[in-house]
C-alpha cells in the first residue's frame, strides 16, 4: 500500500476516479488490518484465514469514517484517526458476540448493590469493625441516594463486569447516556460520603491494607 501524508489521504478520498478508488482500497486494507489486530488482541479467534467479524468491522468502520471524513482536523496521523473506527467497531462486535450468550436479564435480577456490599475480610478485629462501619455507610449512601436504575447499572458494571455498551444496548440506551447515569450516581455517592466526613481514598486504603495483611498471613 502506498504511504500518504494526511493531505494526500484527504485529497484522494475527496477526489474522484482511479485515485479515489485506489485510496479507498488502501484504506479498507488499513481498517481490516486494525480490526484483525484488535480482535486477536482480545483473543477472538476467527475461522482459518479471514475473520468474518474483522471483515464486517472493517466495512462498518469504512462507512462510519467516510461519514465523518469532514471532521478530521489533522491533529493526528490520518491512519491513527482511521484505525480508531476499526478498533471501535471490532471491539464492540467482539463484546456483542461474547455477551450474546449471557443472560443480562438474570444478571440484572441478581442481588442488589447493597447485598453485594458485605463486610470485609480483615483478621484484625479493630480493622474488621472499621470496615463494617464503612460498609454500613456505603449501603446507606446507596439506599438513600441512588435510583433503581443506577443501582442496577453499578452492580452490573462493577460487580458483574458487564461491558457498558452491552448494558446500554440491552436497555435500548447508548454509551453516553449510560456513562452519564453512572457519573451522576458516583457523584451522589461521593458527595454523600463527604457529608458524613468519610474520605473515599481513606476507605480504599483500609480495605487494600487489609488485603495485603491477609496475603502476608496466608503466604508467609
Amino acid at each position: 500500500m502506498k504511504a500518504r501524508t494526511n493531505a494526500e489521504w484527504l485529497s484522494a478520498l475527496n477526489g474522484s476516479g482511479e485515485p479515489q478508488n485506489v485510496a479507498l482500497a488502501d484504506l479498507r486494507g488499513y481498517l481490516l488490518r486494525a480490526a484483525t489486530y484488535a480482535l486477536r488482541r482480545q483473543g477472538h479467534v476467527g475461522s482459518a484465514g479471514t475473520n468474518p467479524l474483522a471483515e464486517d468491522s472493517a466495512q462498518e468502520a469504512l462507512s462510519a469514517l467516510l461519514q465523518h471524513l469532514h471532521e478530521f482536523r489533522g491533529d493526528s496521523r490520518f491512519t491513527t484517526w482511521a484505525y480508531k473506527f476499526a478498533v471501535h467497531a471490532a471491539l464492540v462486535g467482539a463484546r456483542r458476540e461474547r455477551w450474546s450468550l449471557r443472560r443480562l436479564d438474570s444478571i440484572l435480577r441478581g442481588p442488589d448493590l447493597t447485598e453485594r456490599l458485605v463486610a470485609g475480610t480483615a483478621i484484625d478485629p479493630q480493622r474488621l469493625a472499621l470496615q463494617g462501619e464503612m460498609i454500613a455507610a456505603l449501603r446507606e449512601a446507596v439506599d438513600t441516594q441512588l435510583t433503581t436504575r443506577q443501582r442496577q447499572a453499578l452492580t452490573a458494571i462493577v460487580f458483574d463486569e458487564v461491558p457498558l455498551d452491552e448494558l446500554a444496548r440491552h436497555w435500548g440506551s447508548n454509551r453516553n447516556a449510560l456513562y452519564k447515569l453512572l457519573h451522576d450516581a458516583r457523584r451522589k455517592l461521593k458527595a454523600y460520603l463527604a457529608s458524613r466526613d468519610l474520605d473515599v481514598r481513606a476507605m480504599l486504603e483500609v480495605f487494600e491494607r487489609t488485603d495485603r495483611a491477609n496475603q502476608r498471613k496466608e503466604f508467609p
Binding site: T121, L189, L204
Partner: peptide, 19 residues
C-alpha cells in the same frame, strides 16, 4: 463479593470529578 470489586467500586467513587 470479592474485595477486588469493592476496591474497584471505591476507586471509581474516589476518582469521580464534577465534570
Amino acid at each position: 463479593m470479592t474485595d477486588v470489586a469493592l476496591s474497584r467500586f471505591l476507586e471509581m467513587i474516589a476518582a469521580t470529578e464534577v465534570e
